[in-house]
Amino acid sequence: MKQEFNFKNELSGKIALVTGGTKGAGKAIAERLLKAGATVVITARNEPEEENSNLYFIPADLSRPEGTQKVVEGVLLKFGRLDILVNNLGASETPGGGFAALTDEDWETGIKTNLLAPVRLDRGFLPQMIEQENGVIIHIASIQGRLPLHESTLPYAAAKAGLINYSKGLSKEVSSKGVRVLTVSPGWIMTGSATRMMERIAESSNITVEQATQSVMDALGGIPIGRPAQPEDIAEFVGFLVSPRAGYLTGTEYIIDGGTIPTI
């Protein structure tokens, strides 16, 4: 039986922003914060997969400076402040083939989306958080920051490693001013797109979806807990980190990978 946690209203009165909040882990995080009583803003390039009138949506391309500026101005104009910023956006669209297949554009795109977007949003919202002496910033990185996959996602992995380093440095600067900064690094998450990918692998290889999933886990070196993460696994932990119950936590990276990374 799934355990239920009594977190209702613990974020009542808080304004939260979740980037990449229309699907996958971002959608689950936004819904988790909403259930805890927060007013939640989500942003992405595309409309939400499922409309939720309780979530305030701002369409924006955060890989571009004007996109982040649009979101900062939109949130502050409508709500006057931001209390919780979850930099969840992450994407890798680079081709396979290793380093030789990657162009300058591939590298620049990966860095703009996965590193510069959160840096710009932090810079936009931090002055107001520092002024109110209260705020929480969560950076969603990846275990690829420690365990890069060179075949196809090297720019993504490098950008996420940079995000982890930046997040630690930022926490040193702003924690004494009332703003907590934390990093969450998930492993493989079984999002809707991941599920569809397993279905395609299964069909093309004439195997079951379960066998396709196991083959990917094997390629990662195994997941000791025996399954990929569900978006709700990430959302539940983020919900704790942004809550008053985690008020002493800052400057730390938390790995949620079911034991994938083989080292300490």
Rank of each mutant, 00 (worst) to 15 (best):
Ala16His: 02
Asp233Thr: 03
Glu31His: 08
Ala229Cys: 11
Gly259Cys: 03
Ser193Lys: 06
Glu51Ile: 06
Glu66Ile: 13
Asp61His: 04
Lys177Arg: 13
Thr39Leu: 13
Glu151Arg: 14
Ser142Trp: 02
Gln144Ser: 10
Glu50Arg: 13
Asn52Leu: 07
Pro127Met: 00
Glu50Asp: 12
Lys14Pro: 09
Pro155Arg: 03
Ala219Asn: 15
Ser175Phe: 09
Lys2Gln: 09
Arg146His: 12
Val86Ala: 08
Leu102Arg: 00
Glu4Tyr: 14
Arg120Thr: 01
Ser215Ile: 06
Lys35Trp: 09
Gln230Asp: 07
Ile140Asn: 06
Ile255Lys: 11
Leu34Met: 05
Lys23Val: 14
Arg45Ile: 09
Gln214Asn: 11
Gly187Gln: 10
Leu241His: 05
Ala159Lys: 09
Leu82Gln: 03
Lys160Gly: 00
Pro231Ser: 08
Ser176Ile: 13
Arg64Ser: 15
Gly135Gln: 11
Lys27Phe: 10
Tyr248Val: 15
Ser215Asn: 03
Ser185Arg: 04
Gly258Gln: 06
Leu170Cys: 06
Leu147Glu: 10
Val174Asn: 06
Leu89Asn: 12
Leu33Ile: 03
Gly169Tyr: 04
Glu93Phe: 11
Glu47His: 13
Ala219Phe: 15
Gly80Gln: 06
Gly98Met: 00
Gly97Ile: 01
Asn9Gly: 05
Ile201Tyr: 05
Ile207Cys: 06
Lys78Asn: 14
Gly239Glu: 00
Ser176Asn: 09
Ala246Trp: 11
Ile42Lys: 10
Arg196Pro: 05
Gly251Arg: 00
Asn165Leu: 07
Val136Asn: 01
Met197Trp: 12
Ala44Met: 11
Pro228Ile: 00
Thr22Asp: 07
Arg123Gly: 08
Gly226Leu: 14
Thr22Asn: 09
Leu55Arg: 05
Gly145Met: 01
Glu51Asp: 09
Val174Trp: 04
Ile42Met: 07
Ile223His: 10
Lys14Asp: 05
Ser92Glu: 06
Ala246Pro: 14
Thr68Asn: 06
Phe7Cys: 11
Leu82Ala: 01
Gly124Asn: 01
Glu73Ala: 12
Leu11Gln: 08
Asn206Arg: 12
Ile189Cys: 00
Gly13Tyr: 11
Ile264Cys: 07
Thr263Gly: 15
Ile143Lys: 02
Gly90Ala: 02
His150Val: 13
Ile264Leu: 12
Gln214Gly: 13
Asp233Leu: 00
Val18Asn: 04
Ile111Glu: 14
Ile15Pro: 13
Ile164Met: 04
Asn87Thr: 06
Pro59Trp: 08
Ser204Thr: 08
Met1Arg: 14
Glu151Pro: 05
Asn88Glu: 10
Gln230Cys: 02
Ala202Cys: 01
Ile29Ala: 12
Lys35Val: 07
Gly26Phe: 00
Arg196Asp: 12
Ser176Met: 13
Thr213Tyr: 08
Tyr254Gly: 15
Thr43Val: 05
Arg123Thr: 14
Gly67Trp: 01
Tyr254Ser: 11
Val71Lys: 05
Ser176Thr: 11
Leu170Tyr: 01
Gln211Asp: 11
Thr250Met: 05
Phe79Val: 04
Phe7Val: 10
Ala91Lys: 02
Glu203Met: 12
Thr68Glu: 07
Gly26Ile: 02
Val209Glu: 13
Pro155Val: 02
